[in-house]
């Protein structure tokens, strides 16, 4: 199949490992899914200290289950990416370790205290869920299948995050203040989750033409703000003055892009943001420390890739 045929046929779940797809498609899909998988791992890495720091047994159980789910999502997604035949899971995890693998901006920032949890576990997860729901209609079938499973599990995550936020928002004055502080700090990063507006995004056009992406950054950001601005207000969070957000009559939003720190965003995108580098290295060390185990068990087990479909797809 050449790229024109791909564009013509592109539709929900249209392509699978049995199709002879041009390298351009397979590379674009790999880049997108690898980014997604990496983000699951780094999100889990960011949240894992709070399994221990959860202030009750039930919260601890929920946190452990959530982090476990995210590693499971990484497993689904690396497999969906691997089945494109460009990179093995091991290569992708190695790239994540050596700083070449990219992941979501929000997971580069360290998290210090419990009041920051809802920023990730409610807003960022909510934003991710918004995007993921649209990816059930992506053109790479194994990716769409991964989305079915991920979206199934993810609902618990967002509700768990909101439950923690509600508890803080209705808690002591100190808790409410900590929550507002966290929100002030994280809100611009959360807005940046969807990336720059469409005219600045580099990868969108091709990904849309071949059906990998089904909605634009702007559409997704609008949909997110529609759902989550009212939620923030409901919990008495004061929306920071910047970035300025204008609500149009048709229910869409316009963000004053100049109010956001795009230098920081693109520094992060290159994996050069200092706190994030520490997180990448921390995870890399952990991965390296257990390499001996993989060597001990994986002697004759090569991951399957390329055009042979397997049941794991």
């Amino acid at each position: 199949m050449n790229i024109d045929e791909v564009k013509e046929r592109a539709g929900p779940r249209e392509f699978n490992p049995g199709d002879d797809l041009p390298e351009e498609y397979r590379k674009a899909a790999t880049r997108m899914i690898q980014f997604h998988a990496n983000s699951e791992i780094m999100g889990a890495y960011l949240e894992r200290p709070f399994i221990r720091q959860s202030p009750s047994i039930d919260r601890k159980l929920a946190f452990s289950a959530k982090v476990q789910d995210e590693i499971g999502h990484g497993q689904f997604l690396y497999r969906a990416a691997e089945s494109l035949g460009i990179k093995t899971r091991e290569e992708m995890l190695d790239e994540l370790a050596n700083g070449k693998g990219k992941f979501l901006n929000c997971f580069h920032y360290p998290m210090e205290n419990w009041a920051e949890i809802p920023m990730i576990a409610f807003f960022v997860d909510g934003a991710a869920m918004r995007r993921q729901a649209t990816l059930k209609r992506t053109s790479w079938e194994p990716y769409a299948h991964a989305m079915d499973k991920i979206c199934f599990e993810e609902g618990f995550h967002v509700k768990h995050g909101e439950s923690i936020m509600r508890e803080l928002a209705t808690g002591s004055k100190k808790e409410q203040e900590m929550l507002q502080d966290a929100f002030d700090e994280w809100w611009p990063r959360i807005i940046q989750f969807f990336g720059p507006s469409d005219d600045k995004s580099t990868h969108h056009d091709f990904a849309a033409e071949v059906g990998l992406k089904t909605m634009t950054n702007d559409e997704l950001r609008n949909a997110f703000l529609n759902q989550y601005l009212p939620k923030a207000r409901k919990y008495n969070l004061e929306i920071p003055d910047e970035p300025r957000i204008r609500e149009n009559d048709d229910g869409t939003f316009e963000i004053e892009e100049d109010d956001l720190d795009w230098d920081e965003f693109f520094t992060i995108a290159k994996n050069d943001y200092e706190p994030g580098v520490g997180q990448i290295e921390g995870r890399a060390n952990a991965q390296e420390a257990v390499e001996w185990v993989r060597d001990a068990i994986e002697g004759d087990d090569q991951p399957t890739a390329g055009h042979t479909p397997t049941a794991a797809d």
């Binding site: 909510g126 869920m129 993921q132 729901a133 609902g155 618990f156 989550y228």
Partner: peptide, 11 residues
């Protein structure tokens, strides 16, 4: 919850 969260919750 948001629509997509509700769908997941229903599943």
């Amino acid at each position: 919850p948001a629509k997509e969260v509700e769908e997941s919750a229903n599943e």
